[in-house]
Structures are given as structure tokens and as C-alpha cells.
């Protein structure tokens, strides 16, 4: 059997999606990660002043840029370490809306807005190959701890899905089982077609 193709989508393809990308990659799953926002945002000196890069800027460039700006601050808030990890995984953040050539079996999202946008985007492309894709959302806050925790949740789900012999038929059971285990997490699920 071909292995399942997973995608993880967050807003900037920096923290939540990359954390999960990192873990799933390490566990040997076929995974890609994306951001859904129009630009890549990183926390700046204050909450009102995010640092903004266009999609396509490499993690390496961001790292060097922030290091120039204030090595202390960006080491303290963990951004440099995060960028360092990210640049080892892939060169730069990718925008989901632009990666229309990549087709997946499962797309994980980390918030309802992202979930809606992903579905809207896929549907706006119109049906081409009539291949179903499951979009699954678990709300995860955008901080380092939650991202780590979330990546384990995704990983667990990946494991359950990869174990399934007929995912399309069993996905409902898998999600029920997952929810029974993590009762505090609400899982949103939808299906759409490429």
C-alpha cells in the first residue's frame, strides 16, 4: 500500500505546523507543512509589533535578520531556536494556497479559521481528480508548549490512521476513539475533494 500523505497547516508555517512536521518527519510519516496566512508573522518586541516576512523568505534569512536585530530578545522568547529547527527541516515557509500541486490524504489544521480556509481553498480549485481528502482540526494555541503538545496529538492520530487498512471507511471510528482518549479536545472533521 502507498503510505498516507499528511499535511499540517497553521497560520505562518513556523511554530505549530513545523513542530508537528518535525515530529511526524522523525517518526517516518510522509508529511508536509504549510501556512495559510497572507504573510509570515513572528512575535516582535511587543504584541502590537509583529515581525512580518513575505512567504518565500527562507528560515535562514529570518534567523540572520533577527539575530542582527536583537540576539538576546529572540533567544529569550525561543524564536531563534525555533527558526534554527525549521531551517534544518526545509528552506522556507510554504503557503497552502500556492501549493496546489500537492495532494494529500489527510490535512491537519490547528484552528477553526484555518480549517475553514483550507476547505474553501480546496473547493475553490474545483474538482479535478476526484480524490477525497480529510481535513481535521484540533484547536491549538500558538505558543511553544501547546505546539509541542499538539504535535503529539497529531502524531498519535497519524499512527492510528496509518494502522488502518481502509482509512476512508474507518476514519469515523478512529476519530471517535481519539476523542474518547482526549476528552478535552474537540475534533472537527470534514471531507472534500481535489
Amino acid at each position: 500500500m502507498e503510505s498516507l500523505r499528511f499535511a499540517v497547516v497553521c497560520s505562518s508555517n513556523q511554530n505549530r505546523s513545523m513542530e508537528a512536521h518535525h515530529l511526524l518527519n522523525k517518526r517516518g510519516y510522509n508529511v508536509k507543512s504549510y501556512g495559510i496566512g497572507s504573510v509570515v508573522k513572528l512575535p516582535g518586541a511587543s504584541a502590537n509589533e509583529p515581525i512580518i516576512y513575505p512567504f518565500g523568505t527562507t528560515y535562514e534569512d529570518m534567523y540572520q535578520d533577527l539575530y542582527q536585530r536583537d540576539p538576546h530578545l529572540y533567544t529569550q522568547n525561543g524564536i531563534l531556536q525555533m527558526l534554527d529547527r525549521n531551517r534544518r527541516i526545509k528552506p522556507s515557509p510554504e503557503r497552502f494556497q500556492e501549493a496546489t500541486e500537492d495532494k494529500f490524504n489527510i490535512i491537519f489544521t490547528v484552528g477553526e479559521k484555518i480549517f475553514d480556509t483550507v476547505i474553501d481553498d480546496i473547493e475553490s480549485r474545483g474538482p479535478q481528480i476526484y480524490s477525497p481528502v480529510h481535513v481535521i482540526n484540533i484547536n491549538i494555541q500558538d505558543n511553544l508548549d501547546e505546539a509541542t503538545f499538539g504535535s503529539f496529538l497529531f502524531c498519535e492520530m497519524c499512527e492510528m490512521m496509518s494502522d488502518s487498512e481502509d482509512l476512508d471507511n474507518e476514519i469515523e471510528l478512529i476519530l471517535l476513539e481519539f476523542e474518547a482518549k482526549h476528552t478535552t479536545r474537540t475534533v472537527l472533521h470534514s471531507i472534500t475533494f481535489y
Binding site: L167, D168, F193
Partner: peptide
């Protein structure tokens, strides 16, 4: 019986 199969059938009928 199969859910996944039925999903495809529904899509087919739509088309």
C-alpha cells in the same frame, strides 16, 4: 457497506 466507497459513489452521482 464501505463508507469510503460510498463517499466516492456520492461524488459520482453529484457529477
Amino acid at each position: 457497506e464501505n463508507d469510503g466507497l460510498r463517499t466516492m459513489v456520492i461524488k459520482f452521482i453529484e457529477t
